[in-house]
Design a protein around this nucleic acid. Sequence first.
DNA 1: TTGAAAGCGCTAACAA
DNA 2: TTGTTAGCGCTTTCAA
Lengths: 317, 317
Amino acid sequence: MSVALVSIVIRDAPGASAESRRRVLQAADELGYRPDTRARLLRSSRSRLLGVVFGVQHAFHGDLVSGLYTAADEVGYELALSAVTPGRHERRAVASLLQDRCEALILLGPHAPTSYLAGIAAHQPVVVVARAARHRDLDVVRTDDAEGLRQAVDHLVTRGHRRIAHIDGGRAPGAAERRRGYREAMRRHGLDTETRVLTGGLTEDDGATAARALLDANPPPTAVTVFNDRCALGVLDVLHRAGLSVPDDISVIGYDDSRLARLSTINLTTIAQDTEQITTLAVSRAADRLGHSPVTQRELVIPPRLVVRATTAAPPP
Amino acid sequence: MSVALVSIVIRDAPGASAESRRRVLQAADELGYRPDTRARLLRSSRSRLLGVVFGVQHAFHGDLVSGLYTAADEVGYELALSAVTPGRHERRAVASLLQDRCEALILLGPHAPTSYLAGIAAHQPVVVVARAARHRDLDVVRTDDAEGLRQAVDHLVTRGHRRIAHIDGGRAPGAAERRRGYREAMRRHGLDTETRVLTGGLTEDDGATAARALLDANPPPTAVTVFNDRCALGVLDVLHRAGLSVPDDISVIGYDDSRLARLSTINLTTIAQDTEQITTLAVSRAADRLGHSPVTQRELVIPPRLVVRATTAAPPP
DNA sequence: TTGAAAGCGCTAACAA
DNA sequence: TTGTTAGCGCTTTCAA
């Protein structure tokens, strides 16, 4: 019984008798044999490995990772995860994936400048997810964030709001786009003079801080669109504590449609990103590049969807 | 210039002239050379790779992963991450790590039965984190969850509470221990008759559901200890909406000291787990096993710490 | 200080 | 259907 024959059986490749298969499988089982992925990859030049860089603190990245696993499974790729943590920077995370011989990289909301990302893309396909990046070597899969904020503002204006503020995400990926969408929508409704952008961020604390600033305004806005759900949660909390009723006194719209937003007790009106489509497209885009399939659009922009829940209503009289 | 010489330079091993080093490094730089981790590991029998299974949805696991990266770094190990997602079960996550030839496995709050974990531990070291598991082959690093709940109950009793309920974590890792700690503490204070355990869970929704049941009680408790912070958040929300003031009408204690709890606006009294110590010990325990250092205690139980914030006070008169 | 040669566990081409 | 052989990119003797 040669190693080659065993290899055939283990890989479930054609060219072995039923009897051989049985014997090999049984022996493998008894010995607790596990194929060595590394040796396997070393031999066959392809690793069928997609590297994924994600932020370990981001709930939304968690959702994306879940979707990526499923999508990769379907096209026969494996995922190699590399986390960005407070003590482990993005470049470190990327470097470790490159050493592992990933065939392509999928970066979730990367903070690094486009030039750096393009540098990596010179060697292997790079798919940037949930962030804009203009470069001919970079594939991008992202939600149409500007459109998301347009939908939010339209929804509020339809309900009769005029004093609509935006608590932004600062320098976070996607923040600039959302700010732009907000500004454009306000202008389109002739509300230039009511446009008000406050500095927020990714976290509840950022939202809380911004909300306090919001309450100092005179008159305060009757509605506020917030960078993401987490940040919106901080806003909601401050508003409640200030004795304001949501949505009777002030309407709030989040972004992401996270688990938090869906909570019956929070029930936040929000902009949903289509994680399934984003992850499916990100993986198939990577696979296309690796399979040298022709790619027509470098950037795939997925429309978001307004999810109306209980934090938006008509403004107070 | 031979491959062997290049290898020496790249590994920064002794035995190469300064001139050779310079030339190799320069050439490597020009060619964009990256050592192939897989080939390297294939050759040297050791992979210096620690496999980590974590729940991609758990914020607390995120904190642990961050700590593990740091700890692994310090002892010269790399981490291979494998996520558990709604569509990717724990066994799948474990299997992929085993194929990657991780030298040891670190499992964060695994759900699998001890017998299954022990089966893996027969082949390589397994460190179970944040869950109890009694088996001679399994190393365990966990918080003294029972002690955590004792501290919570003691704190409340000291403040004058007697009707103290517990919203548990159902079948989640750690839930049984915390339940036991609660029951023991109540008994020790002679409050057997006031002991009341409600089924909760890991999420805000679980907490909300349990809190509604809590309010149906007559008389309702004056304080409640909750399985974790996320769950406590759901509880707080329901209480607020029911017009109850926390902590004036009812006190609430969470568990984990997550970012959520620290929010100035939530300010939840909670039980902090020492993530730094847990992760450091988990990694060094794995390293000890691999280095065949003698290990005295199979189970390392870390004391938790009560963090008093604004959700606990004396009961209403 | 350098190089030649063997081999880690596997796959792939070819021969038997 | 099975076995032989070569080699993936690296490390590690050992000799030059």
